[in-house]
Amino acid sequence: MGPITGLATIATALTVILVVAGLAVVVLTLAVVVPALRETRGARLARQVSIPRWYLHPATSH
């Protein structure tokens, strides 16, 4: 197989690379964003400041 010299070959290769890279970005974005959106505020707060879940229950704030 010779070197890539034709404009059509270069354009095709760049298009394929662009599509594959775009799909990779979309998949990685969904893999990070969707779980982050599903997480509740209470879970984030409990993890961030290490407060036990039972302590955050509203019944304990009397």
Rank of each mutant, 00 (worst) to 15 (best):
A31I: 11
L23Q: 11
P35Q: 06
V25N: 07
I4A: 10
G6S: 12
V27G: 06
V16C: 12
L45C: 03
A24N: 05
T15G: 13
I51G: 04
L23G: 12
P35A: 10
V16M: 07
V20P: 02
V34M: 14
E39G: 00
A8R: 12
T40E: 01
V19Q: 08
P35Y: 08
I4Y: 06
G22P: 03
A11R: 13
A31F: 15
S50N: 13
L37Y: 01
L45Y: 00
A8M: 09
L30Y: 11
P3Q: 11
I17G: 03
A31L: 15
A8G: 06
L45M: 05
L45E: 00
S50C: 12
T40F: 04
E39K: 03
A31K: 15
Q48W: 02
A46N: 08
P35D: 04
V25F: 11
T5W: 02
I4M: 14
I51W: 07
T5V: 14
V16Y: 06
L37A: 03
Q48C: 04
E39P: 02
V19N: 08
P3Y: 03
L7F: 09
A11Y: 06
L45N: 01
T29I: 13
A11K: 14
V32P: 04
L7Y: 09
L7T: 14
A21Q: 04
A24I: 05
V26W: 04
A8C: 10
V19T: 13
T12H: 06
L30V: 11
R38M: 04
I10M: 10
R47S: 13
R47D: 07
G6P: 02
A46E: 04
A31E: 13
L23W: 01
V34D: 08
A36D: 02
A24H: 08
T9L: 07
V34Y: 09
I4F: 09
A21S: 08
A21L: 07
R44H: 01
R44C: 01
L14D: 08
